[in-house]
Design a protein around this nucleic acid. Structure first.
Length: 467
RNA sequence: GGCGGAGUGGCCGAGUGGCUUAGGCAAGGGACUGCAAAUCCCUGUACACGGGUUCGAUUCCCGUCUCCGCCUCCA
């Protein structure tokens, strides 16, 4: 079967055929850097990172453009409240996003353009829209420029909304100079004390949607393959992007993919609601790789209702995988990830990125591998491990990936190993003379120090306790 | 008012017109072990409710209830 994805516009699963053979152009709505990232932002990052990795595995060259919107009302408000320049706020938050993507092992985008670096492209797009009669400068000389939604018959097709059923956009303070309340701002005229850029229609700053159209087109071309983001962006953001670009004569996105939201106690997590869950807090509960597993395990279009209990369960499930890989490598030495992946796994991902089912294949391999390990069937262990690592690499969850390597313990591991070995030798001696009280006491002391001991047919092995 | 999604066993979470009705976590039993741990094997409890279609529905259709998202900033 071929690769296929659920397309929001078509409202069904469609076979995926890229515009150019062997190449996929992917635009992802990244952050509006008005605050530090919460777990919901990162879910989107993880979901689309897996999409990207899968496309690469399927042999495509992927150009991923993930924007940063570094100017908007909230950024200005935060800056004003803190008494710092707007760009200090966006820089700080962009760094926080980059850090979060990195520790979650999301591969960096091919290009990460910022809105304020693309004002000329936005002006050009507005010029085209005005020339074609789809946009107009506000009648009150405020400097606002609006998109005329009634001029574009397809308006509403992405989100399946009818213009006559819509409420007003209300995306400016006063809707000054709008012809129709549903028109949306391409450009917002200057207000005192706010940053602004010059345009032929007066000075001002970008509206919310224009930057994505301008940047997607600049880096991916007038028509590109996939546009992604959270479902909450479908309307108005993506609807407006699509309207702008297509009214200007561009083909724009051919497939629209949207990830489901993350909720807390059944309520949407949102910055404005104030119940956000920040990444630094979560990685105190579980390790980043376990957080990634948690976010990846549910289908990307489903809602995840966040709970610490579910997060811990996911961590336990991941540790089972990790435990096998660790023991396998101890038994048979390093095994490179296989490029050839089991059919059930590949089938699952081909079908609208069925990560949940793909993980079933992963766990089946873990079980098979554990059995092989118990039987001492080294060749089979190596085979299973290679395939397992191949699958995990595609999911960005390979325990042996350097991305997860602890830093800052240079050389210490060897020292600890030597010390633990001393203790374990004493424990073995105690066991041999059947002094189990002493043996167990040594084991307990190691556990208190964060070291778990397991007895195997080949002698004891130790690990640092997770979490 | 309009558009859309969802209700699965103790929990998380896939999926399907009947076939072995994923997978994980937790629980119980067994194997292994000095005891543990890890691992393997086995076990139970499902498809919100009411109708309909069908030889057969958790899966399709209709209705009801409940929850959530979007139409306002949002991943």
């Amino acid at each position: 079967m071929s690769l296929r994805f659920y397309d929001t516009r078509a409202r069904q699963v469609r076979d995926f055929v890229p515009l150019r053979e062997g190449h996929v152009s992917l635009y992802l709505c990244g952050a509006t850097v008005q605050a530090a990232p919460h777990i919901g932002h990162i879910r989107s990052g993880v979901n689309f990172d897996i999409l990207r990795r899968w496309l690469v595995h399927r042999g495509y060259r992927v150009t991923l453009c993930r924007n940063v919107t570094d100017i908007d009302d909230k950024i200005i408000n935060v800056a004003s409240a803190e008494g710092v320049p707007w760009w200090e706020v966006s820089e700080r938050n962009q760094r926080a996003f980059t850090w979060a993507y990195d520790i979650l092992n999301c591969l960096p985008p091919t290009v990460e353009p910022r809105a304020t670096g693309h004002v000329p492209e936005m002006i050009e797009l507005m010029r085209r829209l005005i020339e074609r009669g789809h946009a107009y400068p506000a009648a009150d000389d405020s400097g606002d420029v609006y998109f005329d939604v009634t001029s574009f018959p397809d308006y509403g097709e992405l989100s399946n909304q009818r213009l006559d059923q819509m409420r007003g956009a209300g995306d400016t303070d006063s809707d000054r100079g709008k012809r129709d309340p549903r028109d949306f701002a391409l450009w917002k005229g200057t207000r005192p004390g706010e940053p602004s850029w010059e345009t032929p229609w007066g000075s001002g700053r970008p509206g919310w949607h224009l930057e994505c159209s301008a940047m997607a087109t600049k880096y991916l071309g007038p028509t590109f393959d996939i546009h992604g983001g959270g479902v909450d962006l479908v309307f108005p953001h993506h609807e407006n992007e699509s309207a702008q670009s297509r009214a200007a004569g561009d083909g724009f996105a051919r497939y629209w993919m949207h990830n489901g939201l993350l909720s807390m106690s059944g309520e949407k997590m949102s910055k404005s609601v104030g119940n956000s869950l920040l990444i630094p807090e979560i990685v105190r509960e579980v390790r980043p790789v376990e957080l990634r597993y948690y976010l990846a395990q549910a289908h990307y279009r489903s809602v995840i209702d966040y709970s610490v209990e579910a997060l811990r369960e996911a961590a336990a499930a991941y540790q089972r995988i990790e435990g096998f890989v660790t023991r396998a490598v101890e038994a048979v030495g390093d095994v490179a990830p296989s490029k050839e992946l089991p059919e059930p796994f590949a089938e699952a991902l081909d079908d609208d990125l069925g990560v949940s089912q793909a993980l079933a294949a992963v766990h089946n391999h873990v079980r098979e591998g554990n059995s092989a390990l118990a039987e001492g069937a080294k060749e089979r262990v190596a085979e299973v491990t290679a395939r397992l690592r191949g699958m995990l690499t595609v999911l960005g969850l390979d325990p042996l990936s350097e991305s997860w390597a602890d830093t800052g313990d240079s050389g210490l591991r060897g020292v600890v190993d030597a010390l633990v070995t001393v203790a374990l030798n004493q424990r073995q001696a105690a066991r041999e003379r059947r002094d189990y009280a002493t043996a167990d006491e040594i084991r307990d002391q190691l556990l208190d120090a964060g070291i778990t001991v397991e007895d195997t047919p080949h002698g004891p092995r130790w690990e640092l306790r997770n979490g």
